[in-house]
């Protein structure tokens, strides 16, 4: 579904991604782990072109997306199908939860207001926040905000969902409720790429783990292989520190 070939990314003179190759299949849940500064988030943000790769190729369903950077229509079309959930939630503070969710379906998919709202309520029910539909984000806890953000992304019926450290800015007691929602999505067969520091969660939910270090995918494998029997020294060193 997603094929990445020799992806490089520079910020000025700094080479953040040094040639990433990987393939992510439909319905697969892939977690990316690794030390900070290893390029995890940059790699994820290249997949929906929030970061423009310096070199390399990304194919989605066999079609190169790099060319869409200069074509606003194609770019919006691409992003419609790739949802993203951010570390800082990025809810729109001037809109209620339900308005946050219905904005894109109404303005991008041209869905009617009633239809968009009934779908939004359905999604809010799914993330357990029906009673918060008409609250503004400032009145929600971190965990509730992130669940609304996930519902907002799902409202576009994306084929792929990207999660950029979805629990890193949450208080510890709220991490569970968000991971629970992501787990439900995984069970429903959503294709997901998740950058995370929650090792227990990564082990439980993912089909495959990518361990990134210094701009490359240093080791990859099934969760059981990576966590129980890492093959390479830096993977071992990292896991011994975080587990």
């Amino acid at each position: 579904m997603i094929k990445v070939i020799d992806l490089h990314k520079y910020f000025g003179d700094l080479e953040v991604l040094k040639g990433i190759n990987n393939e992510i299949n439909k319905g697969e849940v892939v977690c990316i782990i690794g030390p900070s500064g290893s390029g995890k988030s940059t790699f994820l943000r290249c997949l929906n072109l929030l970061e423009v790769p310096t070199k390399g190729e990304i194919l989605i369903n066999g079609v190169s997306i790099i060319g869409s950077i200069k074509n606003p229509k194609k770019l919006n079309e691409l992003r419609k199908n790739i949802g993203m959930v951010f570390q800082q939630f990025n809810l729109f503070p001037h809109m209620t939860a339900i308005e946050n969710i219905t904005l894109a379906p109404m303005k991008v998919l041209k869905m009617g207001k009633e239809q968009a709202e009934s779908k939004a309520l359905e999604l809010l029910d799914k993330v357990g926040l029906t009673d918060k539909a008409y609250e503004y984000p400032s009145r929600l806890s971190g965990g509730q905000k992130q669940r609304v953000a996930i519902a907002r992304t799902m409202a576009m019926n994306p084929d792929i969902m990207l999660f950029d450290e979805p629990t890193s800015s949450l208080d510890p007691e709220m991490v569970g409720e968000v991971l629970e929602v992501i787990k439900t999505l995984a069970l429903e067969g959503m294709t997901m790429v998740i950058v995370t520091h929650e090792m227990g969660f990564a082990r439980e939910v993912s089909d495959r783990i990518l361990f990134m270090d210094e701009g490359i995918i240093y080791e990859e494998g099934k969760p059981s292989e990576i966590f129980n029997n890492p093959q390479r020294p830096r993977t071992r060193e990292f896991l011994s520190k975080v587990l």
Binding site: N76, N81, G83, L103, A104
Partner: peptide, 9 residues
């Protein structure tokens, strides 16, 4: 970023 990632122009 949130707006653009949802496909809004």
């Amino acid at each position: 970023e949130a707006g653009r990632s949802l496909g809004l122009s």
